[in-house]
Amino acid sequence: MSNQYEVSEPPTDAISAIRFSPYADSHKFVVASWDKFAYLYEISDNKQCTLLNRFEHRAPVLDACFGKDDNEIFTACLDCDVRRIDVATSTQDVLSTHDAGVRSVAYSKEHSLLISAAWDSTLHIHPTSADAEWSTATITLPSKPFSLSMSPSKLVVAMSNRALHIYELSTLAEECKNTANALQNRLDIEPWQRRESSLKFMTRAVDCMPNDEGYASSSIEGRVAVEWFDPSTESQARKYAFKCHRQPEGEVDVVYPVNAIAFHPIHGTFATGGGDGVVAIWDAIAKRRIRIYPKLASSIAAMSFTSNGKILATAISPGFEDGKEDMAEGSVAILIRELGENEVKRKAK
């Protein structure tokens, strides 16, 4: 379709993350790839997407996000390092080093915090303002973190064994300051909420609602759960889960993992991307599917909306499936879809 086009210089290997700049009127996005590069692209008005720069790492890059502005990028790398990249000068600083590959990074502009999650079951909390009086703090998690998402006030960490922690960012920031000089910067903080995922299988992705009320999580078993932060029983009663990204083959439903969830920053609807290469748009409140897009060439690896919600970027990569020694052959591409006025808008009742 005319309103969807491919980025001309995609990464050469599987894509692990794609993230638009959260800042207004910015059309830049950063892409992390298994080809050991982090890419910075910008979409211009005339449907052109240009590669501004790319930054080499020592190992595959598993996640990336913007910092305090479009000039600052943080990356999570398989070499255990969390890096800060200054776009203008292309300089890289290692903020901290985990004991295992770093899976995700998330930046809170409200609290100037960078939080990284690594497979050594730790979170690192980095102060990013120059005048911070404390250095990186470490939180030990009960399990390996698989996905990280931040709302203006909360941090949601989805882990293996269906564990899920919700932290309040303000508390985290406070604690970090207080224990600045504690031994080894270990932070023994109880999460604001400990939850068990409402999905029975491994959590694949989590994303918070832009209105700060809840989050959606997805599992490898083609299912998405929508939950609310509010611990009151009324709010908890609202939570639900639904099946998606399944394809009947004969009489067997082939179930694909839901690899990506992205909330729309304005409408509060969200997109899910599955291993089947399908992107679907959902209305979390009305519990309706708004739209389903045609199947893409390979598995959806990551998705992101622009801050104004007018563009959806979808990264596709060959999926890692059962019984495969190697990764499946498949195309790696980034698809930019310009959304129509009401394309992902919640339908009026």
């Binding site: 491994m202 490898i220 067997v252 082939v254 694909y256 993992p257 999926g319 059962d322």
Partner: peptide, 10 residues
């Protein structure tokens, strides 16, 4: 009857 494309839960 379903078949998971990716079934490693750990």
């Amino acid at each position: 009857a379903t078949r998971l494309v990716y079934s490693d839960n750990e």
